[in-house]
């Protein structure tokens, strides 16, 4: 496989970013969404969605195909009108008259990059810089290209670029106007692992600069890696929270214990312990203990009890659930709920 030059590790993003709300906004939150619903005929795209996103936050919309992620982005971006509910985007009420005002404060990187294939990278960006009416056009274009490490490719026709590079041009285009909220709709869809990682690094760099980002994805590790908070969407919002909070809320926390040999009477060892609410044998010499709240407090106590019982401890670790477990749990539950 040949990779384009120009990729000397992306992520070089200019420092100095404001995380303050834009002029003229009411302050507070970058996005306030209340009971927003969109129907296409009798098909429900998303239903009764409510959430809030603060400035400087990276908020993830995580959901399977058809969950309504793209429709939600288009609705908040004023491209389509909601059926009911209300929202404030970058401090402006979501309604048809405010469309241009809202769109001037945000930018959206759609699902497919949508570059003009017969125009060069720089010509594509120039068109959009004019559409946003940015003052220092050429400087902005240069800066955006440098941010995605594509300065050397400015003169290339877009149709000659690989998918990964096109995605980076689309990201540069979204950065031109210094948006108060940046919407990224599945920014790594269809990219290979290397190209995905490059885009992840770019987004992480934007996050460090304090850019408010609304990111949709069906890739869990992406949400887990980049997002401060995640909403799990499947037409309706199933759960909102920090990735670790979601994990904690959905799963009991457990300690995984492995010993040199089996315990003679595990019940006698584990039942009396304060922080432990249950236990099970997972293999001959391994046990799973369900922790009431804090595994860090329970672990030393468990270790002492085991040593006291004469056991040789190989390891005591907290069993970690990835967001994937949370996600599958919710989506599965939902499918079952629908069958009923």
């Amino acid at each position: 496989m040949t990779r384009e030059p120009a990729a000397h590790g992306p992520g070089r993003v200019e420092p100095s970013r404001q995380t303050t709300p834009p002029v003229g906004s009411t302050g507070g939150s970058a996005l306030v969404v209340e009971h927003l619903t969109k129907r296409f005929g009798d098909r429900l795209a998303f239903d009764d969605v409510s959430f809030e996103v603060g400035y400087g936050e990276v908020f993830g919309f995580l959901g399977p195909n058809g969950a309504g992620k793209t429709t939600a982005v288009r609705t908040l971006g004023t491209l389509i009108a909601p059926t009911s509910g209300s929202a404030q985007v970058a401090g402006v009420d979501l309604c048809p008259e405010n469309g241009p005002t809202i769109r001037s404060r945000i930018s959206i990187m759609p699902e497919s990059p949508g570059l003009y294939p017969r125009l060069t990278v720089a010509e594509n960006l120039e068109c959009f810089a004019r559409l946003y009416r940015v003052a220092d056009r050429h400087e902005r274009i240069e800066r955006a290209l440098r941010a995605v490490d594509l300065a050397e490719r400015a003169g290339d026709l877009c149709r000659s670029l690989s998918k990964g590079l096109r995605q980076r041009v689309a990201l540069a285009r979204a950065l031109l106007s210094d948006p108060a909220v940046l919407f990224l709709d599945e920014p790594t869809a269809g990219l290979d692992p290397v190209a995905s990682r490059e885009v992840h690094e770019l987004i992480a760099a934007l996050k460090d600069r304090g850019v408010t980002i609304f990111l949709t994805t069906h890739r869990l590790e992406e949400a887990e890696r980049l997002c401060d908070r995640v909403a799990i969407l499947n037409t309706a919002i199933q759960l909102v929270g920090r990735p670790d909070e979601l994990r904690a809320r959905l799963f009991t926390r457990t300690l995984e214990i492995r010993l040199r040999s089996e315990l003679a009477d595990p019940a006698a060892v584990f039942s009396g312990l304060g922080g432990i609410v249950g236990w099970a044998t997972s293999a001959a010499d391994s046990y799973l203990l369900t922790v009431a709240d804090d595994p860090d407090r329970a672990a030393p106590e468990v270790a002492r009890a085991l040593v006291h019982a004469g056991a040789d401890i190989c390891s005591i670790v907290e069993a970690r659930h990835s967001l994937e477990d949370v996600y599958l749990e919710l989506i599965d539950e939902d499918v079952e709920a629908r069958k009923r």
């Binding site: 971006g77 491209l79 769109r103 949508g114 570059l115 959009f128 559409l131």
Partner: peptide, 14 residues
């Protein structure tokens, strides 16, 4: 069809 309409519509264009 080319996918280039949506990005334009996301700008403040009337």
């Amino acid at each position: 069809e080319q996918g280039t309409l949506e990005p334009v519509l996301t700008t403040p264009i009337h």
